[in-house]
Design a protein around this nucleic acid. Structure first.
Length: 210
DNA sequence: GTTCTAGAAC
DNA sequence: GTTCTAGAAC
């Protein structure tokens, strides 16, 4: 049909994790970086038939890993009841790899305490589960959005995601509510004190190292 | 996802 | 005057 010819006035669509098969981000666009890591042995911490683990390129804590399926699944919207065992496997691998990395680094306390989960609205176009130590001491942790994406309900626990998937056969995300969470006050995840700026919060986090 | 930087906040 | 945040990036 001739009507499918695009006009020059059509807005350029920014690639994002919303893209599904047939509408993927351009190969070298930043949002496609994880797909490249799947095939790049030099950045891999662990790999098996089903999933790959890498170090986050901009870690938001001392230990920050990403677990991704080898299969091209864009995000949680593309996940269905056929993926339950895959997500369970990713969580298991994430836990085992975290323990190994922590042991090797002689990590203690919050440096060896991890959360496993997904961002409600990810930026990268390949499903990825965060494995992140709870110290949050990192130069790459800079913005309120960074903080709230890991410490508010915006961070969806992997076990809860798996439970929801088993119960419903899909994952639903309230994007309006989630986007608002990123503007939350800066609240310490350990003692609930509030801070007015990121530098003040980051200074405070040092106090929780025991 | 990050970088850069204008101007808000202090 | 300096620190800090927040929005554009073609």
């Amino acid at each position: 049909m001739a009507s499918s010819l695009s006009s020059t006035s059509e807005k350029r669509k920014t690639p994002s994790s919303d893209n599904v098969n047939g509408n993927q981000p351009k190969k070298n666009h930043w949002s496609a970086a994880l797909s490249a890591a799947i095939d790049d042995e030099s950045v891999q911490v662990y790999k098996d038939d089903l999933c790959t683990v890498i170090n986050d390129k901009f870690p938001k804590a001392c230990i920050h890993l990403l677990v991704m399926p080898n299969e091209n699944i864009a995000n949680l919207k593309s996940v269905n009841n056929t993926h339950v065992s895959l997500l369970k496997h990713m969580l298991k691998v994430g836990k085992e790899t975290a323990e190994k990395v922590a042991a090797k680094a002689n990590a203690r306390g919050s440096f060896a305490h991890f959360r496993y989960g997904y961002h409600a609205i990810p930026s990268m176009a390949l499903l990825h589960m965060h494995v992140i130590s709870q110290d949050f001491i990192s130069d790459s942790l800079k913005t309120k959005k960074h903080w709230n994406s890991f410490t508010s309900d915006y961070f969806l626990d992997a076990s809860q995601v798996i439970d929801d998937l088993q119960a419903n056969g899909f994952i639903r995300v309230d994007t309006v509510r989630m986007r608002k969470l990123l503007d939350n006050e800066l609240t310490c995840h350990r003692c609930s004190n509030n801070f007015t700026t990121m530098p003040k919060l980051k200074q405070h986090l040092l106090m929780h190292i025991s």
